[in-house]
Nucleic acid binder design. Structure first.
Lengths: 257, 257
DNA sequence: ATATCATTGCGTCGTTATGACACAATGATA
DNA sequence: TATCATTGTGTCATAACGACGCAATGATAT
């Protein structure tokens, strides 16, 4: 499984290497400066941004394919990753657009080539610790960057729709998946955790009730250190008790937000 | 899009009609005699039961393909249907098994035929009103029957795994999807609704607290009729106020079970 | 040095929701 | 007519929740 290095290679060898008709797209979430971020690729030959994606090798598990894409784009080995939806409308990819894009880039491709057939894609969302990511573009893109969630309005193909669905899934799974654990660094403050919840839920929460409830769950432990350097009172640092966290999530955190 | 009538036809025309590599499988839930039921197919040429499934026509939405499978197996037009997971392990289908099965059935198939390639399948779960279903086998099966959930132990390929995942999804989405509405007949009793919840959650609930809480949500309305014919006190009939039900589900029913 | 001020940590209070259980009403069966 | 499983309604103590008060902290301004 040699890594793909050019569009030409995909066009030439794709049909042989990969499964036809199927792809994966990844919504990679990070959290930094109290903002939810998404990793995007700027595409070659078009002034558009896209979600990182890829194809499935003929003998590769689809989850492993997504995991591989994640590794290649972020440099991180073990990443929290979940499927959330299959996007299978016949019109979701625009053949003419693809052909034009490649033409611009000086690439010749036959009209019945593997790459411009209809694809059904499985959407994955991933949660990463922002600080460890080394954004790396792939063969189809010129750069790979973190975007602030609120600044993303238009994306390649149906990728904005995919992103919106990922966010919706994140919201629904907040009580069932270790979302805080995977998005935050090992040590974090209660206001940071709250801000993460508020961003995902898109609503503000009462600071004191949030603290009480979160503490009540019993899976965050307060450390003896405080976060220094802020302009005000130094808040305590916390970390997750992963064992207790996962146990609590199995049943689902009780109550709504 | 002519309906497929025989295995021979699929083998012969499949590659032309359908997308390669992708399929759908449906876990069709019903509720009858206070039991959760699943619709299964008994396969030709093998003493095994399988989930209803199908392929995706080259110009068909994947959700529509699942919907079509549902229509053909149940005779019902509008069915509640949700994707829940993609099963994409390379080893999930066993080429040799398929070849043997067809051999038994006296069907010749080339080793590189479309049908025995690797398939990635998208699992859907469907909720239907038991009484309206007319179970109908497809080209690959000799019969189509309702099975009691608790009697299903082994299925074709990885279908038992798919079923288990569907059930897990049902459990997790109980507070977010109109599951009661779609599984129960228009009029139902509170004990019936409770039994449905208990079956899905696999735990018993206090009758009186269940009634209080369910009434408190405000989307079940008590009718003036009672269910006659039972051996004991005749319970009141209820029906859903669909508008209020859906509104409540948007935010998710608060609290756990 | 001292006052200012946003932020943090901890607590109160009234209301509501929850789990556990009691008891009377119903209506087919014995 | 008595019996009995089942249904409808209610009680009560406890826990959880939302809204809010207030003092402690520590960087910045005066």
């Amino acid at each position: 499984m040699a890594q793909i290095k050019s569009i030409e290679q995909v066009i030439h060898d794709g049909a042989k290497l990969f499964m036809p008709s199927v792809s994966v797209d990844c919504v990679i979430f990070g959290f930094h400066d109290n903002q939810l971020k998404v990793l995007l690729l700027k595409m070659k030959g078009a002034d558009q941004w896209a979600l990182p994606g890829g194809f499935i090798y003929r003998d590769e598990d689809i989850d492993e394919a997504a995991s591989r894409v994640l590794r290649e784009r972020t440099g991180i080995q073990d990443i929290f990753l979940k499927q959330f939806h299959v996007f299978g409308q016949p019109k979701r990819s625009d053949k003419k657009f693809h052909l034009n894009m490649m033409k611009k880039d000086g690439i010749k491709v036959n009209k019945d080539n593997w790459i411009i057939q209809r694809f059904i894609t499985t959407g994955y969302y991933a949660l990463v610790d922002f600080q460890f990511v080394k954004p790396t573009p792939d063969f189809s893109s010129v750069s790979c960057e973190w975007w602030d969630l609120k600044d993303i309005h238009e994306l390649f193909m149906d990728h904005k729709n995919i992103l919106d669905r990922a966010l919706e899934t994140l919201r629904l799974q907040l009580n069932y998946q270790p979302i805080g654990y995977n998005l935050l660094p090992e040590k974090f403050t209660m206001p940071e955790l709250q801000k993460l919840y508020e961003t995902i839920l898109d609503k503000s929460l009462d600071r004191r009730n949030f603290q009480r409830r979160m503490s009540g769950f019993g899976f965050v432990k307060r450390l003896k250190e405080t976060r220094q350097g802020g302009a005000h009172k130094a808040p305590y640092l916390y970390s997750f008790d992963l064992k207790k966290y996962k146990k609590a999530l199995e049943e689902g955190l009780q109550g709504g937000w």
